[in-house]
Design a binder for these strands. Structure first.
Lengths: 252, 252
DNA sequence: GTAATAGTGTCTTTTAGACAATATTTC
DNA sequence: GAAATATTGTCTAAAAGACACTATTAC
């Protein structure tokens, strides 16, 4: 915003500002469309999977795409529409039926290269959602009779628009975040064994972890109170394993 | 984007898509304005400082604000306007006169709460720029006869719009990034002593660091080739100190 | 010499990684 | 008992933090 040179911080009257706002008319320069796109991750069949929809219309008709939609913008100054994160929650709910506010959802950035959508200039604000596997199975994307489906992200898919780039950014975000916060639990069932949690880590990081060494990390989290023991055991093909549950976040 | 249920990935003809695009007319639902706002950091007088402008117009007339401006959006499909990061570079250049493409500039996210600008719905994409102190002094913001000025961010300032929130996010971003990448060098003169680099770390982290322990970290970076020794020494009030220079990034 | 700051060394604790070994259950 | 895997333990190396100490220069 180019500023005229006015200094000294003279407090201007509320009345004057009111008059300014009344007189304000939006310029007629072009505005972009703003969409909110979601990378909804879950663990499916032992792999990191994301929800994709098949496009039914041009452009990119028939191609896989990330779920998303237009940000709802109000018509006047008093009603300016919905917040970005609310639009993301709404999309999440529409695509999966999941409206639980506890589901992890966070913004990872804006993507807005000119030409990314051939129809018009679009700025997409991307969000990452993490859905526990038992919840994901119950959603629209859980079955495969619908247009939305969870697919293994380690397998290459031809995606519409620049959604491949957004997906890559989302994977990088989750990998980085895994090392500093408790997001692994957002992709793990309510109760889990040490090995099951290790599986989640392995799937996100894309590499195997030593069971003994992972156990040490796990026990540290237990001491810190991030994880709590339960009385139950999980039956396995061999020796049963203790079940634990997530107790508290290690950072807000 | 709501999808009609079409499956099977039948590849559609280019001609059909072309026809679709020709017929496409943007809907008349409201679009938001999109701006790019910058948090331009430097080190000034031994403190982390950011560039602020004084608003000359309503709303928030007379208040401090982050420099920023509207994203330029083209009028038609063929010419969709400038990229987000190009808009950020343009603003950086306009506000500081610095057009060097080597200046660190990266996006930290989109801010778009309804009501953040009383005039109309605005989505702001925020960028962080890091400017070396010797460069910052030469800029418009270096003196204080202009409307743009670098101010110590650890002192509270009443900022326009939600710019306080954006500034806080930018500071958090830089602090996190300091621990994993080489951004400290983006705020350090070309050549520097160990103590001077430590000063940069201290100013960003907001806490003192042990000189002996920091030296060990420093020497590790020297071994890794991130830093290189020079032949020069810096004269100090007491024992002179060796000068080093930044050699290579530790991650792209 | 004295003050100031550059630079070195020591000790402890934490964490990670590689990897061997033991324990307990199902079958 | 055999197979599987949960669990424990050992050794090494890297890194961080606290803190005392030495070296070299300006004045």
């Amino acid at each position: 915003m180019s500023q005229s040179i006015t200094r000294g911080g003279s407090s201007t009257s509320k009345k004057e500002e009111q008059a300014f706002l009344e007189a304000y008319r939006p310029g007629d320069y072009a505005r972009p469309s703003v969409t909110v796109d979601l990378v909804i991750f879950t663990i499916k069949d032992g792999a990191l999977a994301a929800l994709f929809v098949t496009r039914g219309e041009h452009p990119w008709k028939g191609a896989l795409a990330l779920p998303g939609g237009f940000l709802r913008v109000g018509k006047d100054r008093a009603e300016q529409g919905e917040d970005l994160v609310d639009a993301a929650r709404r999309e999440l709910s529409e695509e999966t039926g999941l409206s639980d506010a506890r589901i992890y959802l966070t913004q990872i950035g804006a993507f807005g290269k000119p030409g990314r959508d051939p129809r018009t200039r679009v700025i997409s604000v991307a969000y990452v959602a993490l859905v526990r596997p038992e919840l994901a199975q119950k959603t629209v994307g859980g079955g495969d009779a619908t247009h939305a489906q969870f697919l293994d992200v380690s397998k290459p898919h031809k995606l519409a628009f620049d959604h491949g780039e957004i997906l890559a950014a989302a994977r990088a975000f989750v990998q980085r975040e895994l090392l500093v916060s408790s997001i692994a639990f957002e992709l793990t069932p309510e109760t889990f064994t040490i090995q099951e949690l290790r599986g989640t880590y392995e799937v996100i990081l894309g590499e195997p972890l030593d069971p003994g060494n992972f156990r040490k990390r796990f026990l540290r989290m237990l001491e810190e109170g991030i994880i709590a023991e339960t009385r139950e055991m999980r039956r396995t093909p061999s020796k049963p394993a203790r079940l634990y549950r997530f107790a508290k976040r290690n950072r807000s």
